[in-house]
Amino acid sequence: MATTTQVTIVGSSNVDITAMMRRLPSPGETVLADSYRLTPGGKGANQALAAALAGATTEFIGAVGNDSHAEIALGQLAEAGVVLDRVKHIDGATGVAIISVDAQAENSIAVISGANSAMDEVAVRAAGALAGVLVLQGEIPASGIRAAIDAATGPIVLNLAPVIELDRDYLCRANPLVVNEHEAALILAQLEGTAELSTDPEAVIAQRLCDQGLESVVITMGGDGALVAQRGEDSASITTVAASKVTAVDTTGAGDAFTGALAARLAIGETLIDAAGFASRFAALSVQGHGAQASYPRSLENL
């Protein structure tokens, strides 16, 4: 889909080292893996690729090191036409994610931030104005997230994953906040000032997040689809978006596929509910292939 709209992603870029195995190890246990692969990843870069493939003119702003991983980290973004002019190259290591995937397509992930740690307030402010729909995640320092929000000229899509401490005023400038069920409970606890995580249903948690000042919330629920909450005068409007029925091979990067596609569709003027429906279908296609970026659909023909 040709478009002149813009999505700007400020965030992380990693190389994923993915081990495929029958089951994930328990603490202290060694499990033999069947194979491994080295692929580009990082939540920011994943979302940038998804936004570009979903039809938006996209820029990625992040940092890589001066090692051999840097080219891998940015390779698929460059191929997709993502603008990389404001990517920072630093002395040091590119970020790395160590991913274990089992036979049921469940995964566990450990992230070494590397160059992503350089995306602090100073680096983000130096990048200048951030046009269009701005997308942020939790894999860069909080000071960088705050600086990006301050520099935004359009709507802000905040995927606070992993959940890090962020001032209420900045959290509430997200429209929407995009999180999974566990992240939603963590952020609610942060806003309500409690250490106890809510066990309420997702719709109740979404309502409580809107009560805390968020304009809109999207909670992704894997195979159960997504929930969209939009704040109203008395209560939030809650809509459930169904998930496509597919056989999952690898869920790595599916949440990023959803967030990037959502931002792209918001950028071309779709409603949040329609954008979430498209993003759910886009993400469903991604879980049918291995890896994160490599699994993202290169054609919108079936969407």
Score class of each variant (00 low, 15 high):
L266N: 05
A80F: 07
A45K: 09
D120P: 14
L166W: 08
S244H: 11
A284L: 02
G154Y: 08
G81D: 09
R298D: 08
S286L: 01
T271V: 03
P162T: 09
G253E: 01
N46L: 07
I149V: 10
A189D: 02
L285D: 12
N180S: 01
F278A: 00
G75F: 07
I112S: 12
T259Y: 03
A131P: 12
E71Y: 04
L227M: 10
H182C: 12
E233H: 07
A184T: 02
A161T: 15
A115I: 08
L166H: 09
E165A: 15
G291H: 06
A73Q: 06
A195D: 15
A63G: 10
V204G: 06
F258C: 07
E183D: 12
L197Q: 07
Q207D: 13
T8Q: 11
E215F: 02
I149R: 00
I149P: 05
E196T: 15
D256E: 02
A151Y: 00
T94C: 03
G41F: 12
D34F: 01
P297L: 02
A52Q: 07
Q293S: 06
L262C: 01
H182L: 14
S280C: 11
R22M: 09
P155F: 00
T251D: 03
L32T: 15
A229D: 07
N180K: 03
L24N: 12
I90H: 01
C172F: 10
R208V: 03
M221H: 05
A131N: 12
N302Y: 11
V124W: 05
Q47W: 11
T153I: 03
G291L: 06
D256N: 09
D34Q: 12
L177I: 00
V83D: 15
S280A: 15
I112A: 13
L186C: 12
E79R: 14
G81F: 10
Q137L: 04
V15W: 04
L136S: 06
R37M: 11
A283Q: 03
G154M: 06
A151N: 13
R298H: 14
G62L: 11
A275R: 01
V135R: 01
A19W: 11
S12L: 04
S235I: 12
A161P: 14
N116G: 13
D91M: 03
A33N: 04
V7G: 04
Q190G: 00
G277K: 09
L227V: 08
Y170I: 14
D150G: 10
N302W: 08
H69D: 15
L32D: 11
P155R: 14
A151I: 00
H290V: 09
A48V: 12
A161N: 14
Q190N: 03
D250N: 13
G154S: 06
L38S: 08
M1C: 13
A264E: 11
P141E: 08
A292R: 01
E183A: 15
N46Q: 09
V287N: 02
D91I: 09
L158M: 13
V31W: 04
L171N: 02
L303E: 04
I140P: 12
R37Y: 14
P176I: 02
D211Q: 07
V246A: 05
G81K: 11
I99T: 05
A45N: 08
I90A: 00
A123M: 08
Q230G: 06
V163Q: 04
N159E: 03
S143F: 01
R86Q: 10
N46I: 13
Q47L: 10
